[in-house]
């Protein structure tokens, strides 16, 4: 089910996939498609959406678990778990949580990852997919662990940071799926993302080139000569092929291409269609 053809299972607990990429490349669509494909492969799947990114729920069939986690409520939950009881609510309502967030930058990001870890260890799922924020925020989220370990000397937050760090660095339990588009700038930025992940010691489970439009490679040059529009199309097709090749070469894991469907609104049935193609290997390998 991963781009390399393996099923993303972990030896113990669930496998965690972090779906990463810059804004607008199709992370949510990819997360929904992977969840649907895993579901059809017999895995128990949970998809985690952050804050307002709830479009996921409308893309997955109802038999796939989707949970929304918000930064503020995750911190409140966490404080409740830590035995702060009703105090946590008072902290939250008085705005002190904001001060805590200010005091320890990245604490919100950490508790979200902590929540993902908790889902993964619950025993209820084989696969937990996080529809992560866009690259910039996602990288500060992943590095918040080290940041907090640096500044917080003790206490529950430090323990939490250490647990999350262990999960992120364990390639058998956690991996990133890097999503990009077949365009020059997105591919450049995705290759930079791959390098940053390597620096953070987070393994890459696969690459996805999303929303690839049909292209025409005019074998007969006369077509391209016939009109400016056709020449433009021909050039676009060549650029796209080159960008796809560049991402394959630079990404350390297997990469697969997903077609763009000619619609302005993806629905569950579209995701089923993409997941079906993904599983049967119909997805064309450009």
């Amino acid at each position: 089910m991963l781009p390399d053809g393996t099923l993303p299972r972990a030896e113990a607990g669930a496998r965690v996939l972090l779906v990463l990429g810059k804004g607008g490349v199709g992370r949510t669509t990819t997360a929904a498609m992977l969840a649907t494909a895993a579901h059809h492969s017999g895995l128990r799947v949970l998809v985690v959406a952050i804050d307002g990114r709830e479009g996921l729920r409308g893309l997955c069939t109802t038999d796939i678990d989707v949970r929304a986690v918000s930064a503020g409520s995750a911190l409140e939950d966490y404080l409740l778990d830590q035995g702060f009881g009703a105090f946590a609510r008072r902290l939250a309502s008085s705005g002190v949580i904001e001060v805590v967030g200010a005091a320890a930058p990245g604490i919100h990001d950490l508790v979200i990852l902590g929540k993902v870890k908790q889902f993964a260890q619950s025993g209820r799922y084989d696969l937990v997919i996080l529809d992560a924020p866009a690259t910039g925020h996602a990288m500060s989220m992943l590095s918040s662990v080290d940041g907090l370990l640096d500044i917080v000397e003790g206490g529950p937050i430090r323990d939490q940071a250490r647990d999350v760090e262990r999960l992120l660095r364990d390639r058998d339990r956690c991996g990133a799926v890097v999503v990009t588009l077949a365009e020059t700038t997105p591919v450049n930025e995705s290759l930079e993302l791959c390098a940053s992940l390597a620096q953070l010691n987070v393994s890459i489970a696969g690459g996805v080139i999303a929303a690839v439009e049909p292209t025409i490679d005019f074998a007969d040059d006369a077509y391209a000569a016939a009109s400016g529009v056709l020449a433009g199309l021909h050039e676009r097709a060549c650029d796209m092929t080159a960008d796809i090749a560049r991402f394959r070469l630079g990404c350390s894991a297997a990469v697969r291409v997903v077609d763009r469907l000619p619609t302005t609104e993806l629905e569950t049935s579209d995701i089923e269609r993409l997941a079906g193609r993904w599983l049967t290997g119909w997805v064309h390998d450009a």
């Binding site: 404080l79 830590q82 702060f84 105090f87 902290l91 002190v96 001060v99 805590v100 005091a103 320890a104 604490i107 500044i151 917080v152 000397e153 003790g154 206490g155 529950p156 937050i157 430090r158």
Partner: peptide, 11 residues
């Protein structure tokens, strides 16, 4: 309470 969560040095 804030100190207990994030460590008193941070506070």
């Amino acid at each position: 309470a804030i100190g207990r969560v994030i460590g008193s040095n941070v506070l």
